[in-house]
């Protein structure tokens, strides 16, 4: 299977730690991750209007380019990008008329989109194509003693048509955490919404969600959260400061991208620039477990 990856805009700036750790951890598994050439924004938020074809141009062009570049699957580490791309694929597959209209608009692009390329989240790729057993075998620095809460949020498992796991009881990230030698901790709020783009206009809504989710994780014994979404990471990590304005007893909890933990466990370097992109410094926790 020929695989390319779609980083999306945020991985190229505010979440460079996600991008770099994804590439290095895949290298640690022996997979040379090639970036899709000439990609554009995924479309950011999947448009719910059934006649809004304009919003489907961005994701469909990315899939078209992935096909033209010979990929069978396009891996999208960012949950938002994954969700938008995967839903666009389904959206145009539902009614041939939609794709026809898009093609007539994209007449200057070379070739038509055939719908052949799969949109795959790396967590599903690790589970289905690489296998967590193999991941566990490749671990050279087990994350022993770390208790981690897998935070799924909304976009990996909703709507069910693009869900990478059981929408009610997802376990794919927990399995990865365990394969890396850490202990995954179940907590109630792991599939709750982080507040999403409310973070732009309604800080109090997000602050309350951040507080609720982190408390839930801590009560269940988690020392840190794990996510696959830069927006969730922003709301859960950067927004802890805002949350503390409303809930002064909320103590800090680090938030990792799953790929950062993979890179660590697979013996890849943790770069100091990654730490700078974290609001709550994870260094103390890592040091405590001999992972610095």
């Amino acid at each position: 299977m020929s695989v390319l990856y779609f980083p999306g805009c945020t991985l190229k700036n505010k979440a460079e730690n996600f991008d770099q750790s994804f590439v290095s951890s895949m290298a640690g598994l022996g997979v040379d991750m090639k970036e899709l050439d000439r990609w554009n924004c995924c479309g950011t938020v999947f448009s719910m209007a059934s006649d809004d074809l304009m919003s489907q141009l961005a994701p469909i062009r990315n899939l078209l380019r992935a096909e033209q570049q010979g990929a069978d699957a396009l891996l999208a580490p960012c949950s938002m990008c994954y969700n938008t791309l995967a839903r666009a694929k389904h959206f145009v597959a539902q009614e041939p008329d939609r794709l026809e209209k898009l093609h007539s608009f994209m007449y200057k692009e070379q070739g038509d989109y055939k719908g052949a390329v799969d949109v795959v989240h790396p967590l599903a790729y690790l589970r289905d194509s690489i296998g967590f057993d193999l991941v566990a075998k490749k671990v050279s620095r087990p994350l022993e003693g770390l208790k981690l809460g897998a935070y799924y949020g909304c976009l990996l498992t909703r709507p069910s048509i693009v869900s990478i796991d059981d929408p009610q009881k997802p376990e794919v990230m927990d399995k990865l955490i365990n394969a890396l030698g850490a202990e995954s901790v179940y907590f109630e709020q792991r599939t709750e919404c982080c507040g999403s783009y409310q973070t732009l206009t309604n800080l109090a809504v997000v602050a309350n969600r951040t507080n609720m989710i982190i408390r839930s994780a801590r009560t269940s014994g988690a020392q840190a959260l794990v996510t696959s979404c830069p927006l969730c990471a922003y709301n859960l990590d950067q927004m802890q400061r805002e949350a503390r304005k409303h809930h002064s007893d909320l103590s800090p909890m680090p938030v990792f991208y799953f790929t950062e933990l993979m890179a660590l466990a697979l013996g890849q370097d943790w770069k100091s620039e990654w730490t700078e992109l974290h609001e709550v410094d994870p260094a103390g926790l890592l040091k405590e477990h001999g992972l610095d």
Binding site: C9, N40, C41, L57
Partner: peptide, 29 residues
């Protein structure tokens, strides 16, 4: 606000990948 429609690229008399450069700016490249 770019919706990645590529209309700009279609009209550019210089055959520049106009949308692509806007997209690069958006991601900081």
């Amino acid at each position: 606000r770019c919706v990645a429609c590529n209309t700009c690229t279609k009209i550019c008399p210089q055959d520049i990948q106009v949308m692509d450069y806007i997209q690069c700016i958006m991601r900081g490249d």
